[in-house]
Amino acid sequence: MRYLAAKTAREAAEALAAEAGVTRVLAGGTDVLVQMKAGLVEPDLVVDIKKIPGIATITPEAGGFRVGAAVPNSVLGEHEGVRTLWPGVVEGANLIGSTQVQGRCTMAGNLCNASPAGDAVPGLVAANAVARIAGPDGERDCPVADIPAGPGKTTLKKGEVITSILLPARPARASDAYLRFIPRTEMDIAVASAAVSLELNADGTVKAARVVLGAVAPTVVVADAAGKALVGTKLDDDTLAKMAAACEAVCRPIDDKRGTVAFRTKTAGTLAKRAALIAYARAGGSK
């Protein structure tokens, strides 16, 4: 196994593109190192991107924030600006692992690990976040929603590395929330999860809504009909019931050791309801 600490994104991309064997990108390493230790992957080349200048910083951009691919989630969680603008994204990212893991793990890593249960991903997708990707042929931008392709799989091409994620600007009276269900209270993996991002009208009715579900399909699911069900309402009980039903309708989970199809489906709707109410209150809505 070879280890390369890349000095530029281009160097990382070129090295990854040139390697014929198994490659892994190392940022926090909280997935890669665990998988290597468990013998699940034996990479020929590990490219460390942490040392690329600027890759571990959070920068204001066009009213939003550009979060570097190597920003640890604990640093993200202490960033007042991001926390105020996208509290749901931050609370999702901060649920990953333990306090120790938080000091290393990153949102970009969570995205690239491509677990359907990744806690950072639903919030990013609900936020319409955009990943900046360096490749051997240059940079490109891609919506976060288009990156997961299935369990352990992404749409990134050989040699491509995510270098940052842009959390966009948002109007006043807007907020978001993320909830997951785990059988314990921490140190666990989502059995089902939901992120809801809302924008309100001046009268407190929902102007726009985006509902995203995790751990209920091979990738995160954008529940369009669930989001639409909220528009024009103040989240009355009937609306929430309709939204939950719309969530259940798009779930395609599996039965496994962590939960049953029925449980995951039902719980995804429940979490979406609860997350919607939190996001609504955060956006300044009152019923």
Binding site: P183, R184, T185, E186, D188, I189, K257
Partner: peptide, 16 residues
């Protein structure tokens, strides 16, 4: 055995 590890063999954590 489907869950030979502390992630999916869930002993209580302190916050539980």
């Amino acid at each position: 055995l489907q869950n030979p590890g502390f992630l999916d063999y869930r002993v209580p954590v302190a916050s539980d």
